[in-house]
């Protein structure tokens, strides 16, 4: 399998001349195309910072970061924006939908920044909303949707640019367990279809829906191993095994 992400001795620190806070102390790992990886760890472990760097929202301080074999450690702001727009889909814990726009408009939003013709935008967004089971809610605004439905809209939005990888940051954190499982089911299905997914969570139970767990502690990798007893959900929000 070809490598999607290669990280060597990645370090990240924040601060000015007076106070420097070291977050990541040197991480080395690879992620292949088609993998479903959980980045786990307690709060303060650096998992959010790592996700921001891998998701081109932030830059690393030291080390090497190759994306699809290309060194992306030293990209400028606009180049980072291009990478986010073409390679990455984000799903956030707080959904981050535009409350005054319809479901359809929310899903089309990333295409605004990629010169996609309007017709094409509507078609792709509609298809994806059908895929996540919300084809009948195209003109609803998010405040009329349940939490699970909102997160499914967010997943459709993350997919609309046909990204190489999806980052899901605590996607079930604001959901009841049934809706949470439905969301995990969608992510697992997407992974079956070949999408690469990185799930960021602090819950072992949620992390075990992935195939591999990278456990962070205090800015270092504590362990990096496959999931032995994988949690599998179905579309009704119940665990199969």
């Amino acid at each position: 399998m070809s490598k999607l992400i290669e990280v060597k001795d990645l370090k990240k620190e924040y601060g000015n001349d007076e106070v420097i806070t070291k977050i990541l102390h040197g991480l080395t790992f690879d992620i292949d195309k088609g993998e479903f990886v959980s980045i786990m760890g307690p709060s303060g472990s650096g998992k959010s910072t790592l996700m921001h760097i891998l998701g081109f929202l932030d830059t690393l301080s030291e080390g090497q970061f190759l994306f699809e074999g290309r060194d992306v450690s030293k990209l400028e702001d606009d180049e980072l924006a291009d990478m986010r727009s073409s390679k990455i889909g984000f799903v956030f814990q707080a959904f981050n939908l535009l409350n005054r726009s319809t479901t359809l408009e929310n899903v089309m939003l990333p295409l605004l920044y990629t010169d996609t013709p309007k017709k094409e935008r509507v078609k792709r967004a509609t298809d994806l909303l059908n895929q996540v089971g919300l084809g009948h809610r195209l003109d609803y605004t998010p405040n009329k949707l349940s939490g699970g439905e909102k997160q499914r809209v967010a997943i459709a939005r993350a997919l609309v640019n046909d990204p190489d990888i999806i980052f899901a940051d605590e996607p079930t954190g604001n959901l009841d367990s049934k809706s949470g499982l439905q969301v995990m089911k969608i992510l697992q299905d997407l992974n079956e279809k070949g999408h690469s997914i990185i799930l960021v969570t602090h819950e072992k139970y949620t992390a075990e829906h992935a195939k591999r767990i990278i456990m962070l502690k205090d800015g270092l990798i504590e362990y990096d191993q496959p999931v032995e007893h994988r949690q599998i959900a179905d579309e009704n929000g119940t665990l199969i095994k």
Binding site: L57, F90, L109
Partner: peptide, 16 residues
Amino acid sequence: TQEIGLRKAIGAKSNQ
């Protein structure tokens, strides 16, 4: 602010 953050996360450039 949140909307701006989101737009940036999904690929909007500063000048956009």
